[in-house]
Amino acid sequence: MTDEMWTIKRCLDWTNDYLARKGIERPRVSAEWLLTSVTGMSRIQLYTEFDRPLDSAELARMHDAVVRRAKGEPLQYITGETAFRTIDVACEPGVLIPRPETEVLVEEVLSYLDAEVLGPRPVDAAAHPRAHPRAVLPWNEMVEEQRREEQAAAGEDRDTRDARNHDEAPDEEVAEEAPVPASDAMPCARVLEVGCGTGVISLSLASERPGRVRCVATDIEPRAVDLTKRNRRALGLTEADVDVREGNLVSPLDRATEWGTFDVLVSNPPYIPTDVMRKLPREVSAYEPELALAGGTDGLDIYRRLLRAAPHMLRADGLFACELHEDALGKAADLARRAGFEDVEIVQDLAGRPRHLLARVPASVVARAEEEDGRAPA
């Protein structure tokens, strides 16, 4: 009887050996994740409860999962979820599986926002109405300056206001002098993500900077839009945090009210060159959507369209951030410089390969886009 019992340890060891014989890379990891999905246990619990038997329902689910994995189906589609930075999201067939490389892209966007949008406060916007100058004020000085501006606009100085409040409404004096909550004065960033897939970029930005980052995320694939919305709900975020829209690239954006209002345009577009597409592992080519992978001959078909769109979407000195194929970054950087973008930088991924392009869209390029659009400067 004992020999026939399928315990956690026996199932883990058998699955590891079986997947190894089928040529699955890192079979032990696959075995662990499949078991955690089937049992609801953590990976640590698997090793602390080796003798726990699996019931008949768990065995049936595990058998189905192992068969799918042995055929090469990605773990994320089998378990229905994946981890990305600080969040866990649902992952389904028909939508691109998030990669660790993209976590670096999110980090770069956050670093820019913290340094240029969320932390600094503009004190002189003469260069361009949408520019973020580098000068900053501490929060307490920002609050005090805001008070002084409001008082000046009302035609009152502090002494006059205090005297009137003392005579007419002593109860209101405390409220008038109470510190302004930081959230009332803190700037809020606007981010446009094109091609959101599972939504991990926008959802991470909104989750890691709660109330400080507002995202609009677009995707042409209805399944991706639906999945991002479900992931948003599961994370407790709202439409105000991440507004998800179906459409091709920037087409869901309102020309009159939204063009030129974003601090960042970020994208992990289809970027696999045609020759590389032919050599992709079966685990990718047979299961993940070609629409989210194929980037044309040089991998830059969608990138070129985003490059043209960026000056129309961003405020002056806004950030254009894009994940691309390692062999295409040099050409992509040249295209960005020829388009007038500045501070063009190539960032490596976790494996040390060139993976991300960052560039700023200067005021002159934004102004030219505004003129082409017939829009007044924002």
Results as ranks from 00 to 15, higher is better:
residue 185 A to R: 14
residue 202 S to V: 06
residue 198 T to F: 08
residue 216 V to T: 14
residue 218 T to D: 00
residue 221 E to M: 07
residue 184 D to P: 00
residue 204 S to Q: 04
residue 217 A to P: 08
residue 202 S to F: 05
residue 177 E to R: 15
residue 192 L to G: 04
residue 212 R to F: 05
residue 225 V to S: 03
residue 225 V to M: 03
residue 189 A to M: 09
residue 197 G to K: 09
residue 216 V to Y: 06
residue 196 C to Q: 04
residue 211 G to Q: 12
residue 209 R to E: 12
residue 203 L to T: 06
residue 224 A to Y: 02
residue 223 R to I: 04
residue 219 D to F: 10
residue 189 A to L: 07
residue 209 R to K: 13
residue 220 I to H: 04
residue 188 C to G: 08
residue 202 S to D: 09
residue 180 V to G: 13
residue 196 C to L: 02
residue 226 D to G: 05
residue 184 D to V: 13
residue 210 P to W: 13
residue 227 L to N: 00
residue 220 I to P: 03
residue 204 S to R: 06
residue 195 G to W: 06
residue 222 P to H: 08
residue 191 V to K: 03
residue 219 D to Y: 10
residue 191 V to N: 03
residue 205 L to V: 05
residue 212 R to W: 05
residue 224 A to R: 00
residue 210 P to D: 14
residue 209 R to T: 12
residue 192 L to H: 03
residue 220 I to D: 02
residue 192 L to D: 04
residue 193 E to T: 00
residue 186 M to G: 09
residue 215 C to A: 11
residue 191 V to G: 00
residue 193 E to P: 06
residue 199 G to D: 03
residue 195 G to N: 07
residue 211 G to W: 10
residue 203 L to G: 07
residue 227 L to G: 02
residue 196 C to N: 01
residue 213 V to P: 02
residue 220 I to S: 09
residue 211 G to H: 12
residue 228 T to E: 00
residue 187 P to N: 12
residue 198 T to C: 13
residue 215 C to R: 05
residue 193 E to M: 03
residue 184 D to I: 11
residue 208 E to M: 10
residue 223 R to S: 12
residue 196 C to W: 03
residue 194 V to R: 06
residue 178 A to W: 14
residue 221 E to Q: 13
residue 193 E to H: 00
residue 201 I to R: 07
residue 179 P to R: 14
residue 197 G to F: 09
residue 178 A to D: 14
residue 199 G to Y: 04
residue 224 A to H: 01
residue 206 A to F: 11
residue 221 E to A: 13
residue 228 T to A: 11
residue 225 V to F: 01
residue 215 C to H: 06
